[in-house]
Amino acid sequence: MILKNKNQVNNTQNEEKKEFAIHSRRYLGAKTKLLPLIEDVVNKSIQEWHSFTDLFGGTGVVGNRFNKPGKELIINDLLFSNIHSYHTFFSPEPFDKNKVASILQTFNEADVKEDNYFSINYGDKYFTKENARKVGYVRDKMEELKQTGKVNNREFSILFTSLMYALDKAANTVGHYEAYRKNLDMFNPITLLMPALTENETNQLNKIYQRDANELVREINTDILYIDTPYNSRQYVDSYHLLENLAMWEKPELEGVARKISSEDRQYGKSKYCLKSAPEAFDDLIQHVNAKLIVVSYSNMAEKGDGRSNAKISDHEMISSLEKRGKTISYEQDYKHFTTGLKDIDNYQERLFVCHVGQ
Rank of each mutant, 00 (worst) to 15 (best):
D223N: 15
Y240P: 00
S277G: 07
T198W: 02
Y209M: 12
E244I: 04
A196D: 14
S239M: 15
K169T: 12
L205F: 15
D265M: 07
W249R: 01
P279W: 12
L275T: 09
E280A: 09
R181P: 01
S263M: 09
S239W: 11
A278S: 09
M164F: 10
K182F: 10
C274F: 08
L275Q: 00
R211K: 14
G256M: 09
E219Y: 05
N206G: 05
E178T: 07
H176R: 10
F187Y: 15
W249D: 04
V174N: 15
A179D: 10
L293M: 05
L254I: 06
Y177V: 05
Y231Q: 12
A213F: 02
L205G: 06
Y236Q: 08
V296L: 07
D283P: 01
T229N: 02
L216S: 06
R211I: 07
N245F: 03
V295T: 01
P230D: 07
I208Y: 07
L216Q: 01
L225D: 00
L242E: 09
V295L: 04
L184I: 12
L225N: 02
E215H: 10
K169H: 07
K270E: 01
E201M: 11
I208Q: 05
A278E: 00
K272Q: 09
Q287P: 00
D168W: 01
D212G: 06
A258R: 12
K276Y: 02
D223M: 10
N200W: 04
P189H: 13
A166I: 02
V217P: 02
Y165G: 00
L216A: 01
K270W: 04
V289Y: 13
L216C: 06
R259P: 11
P252Q: 10
A166T: 05
F187G: 03
L225S: 08
V296K: 02
V217Y: 04
P195R: 11
P189S: 12
C274E: 03
S277T: 15
L285V: 09
L254N: 08
N214C: 12
N214V: 13
A179Q: 09
L243W: 08
S239D: 08
N183S: 14
G175S: 01
A278Q: 02
I286V: 15
I220M: 10
D168R: 07
E250I: 00
N214M: 09
V295I: 11
N214S: 11
Y231R: 14
A291N: 02
N290D: 13
P252D: 08
L225V: 13
S233Y: 06
K169N: 04
D212R: 02
L242S: 03
E201T: 14
M248W: 11
V289I: 15
N214F: 03
I227P: 03
S297T: 13
K260P: 01
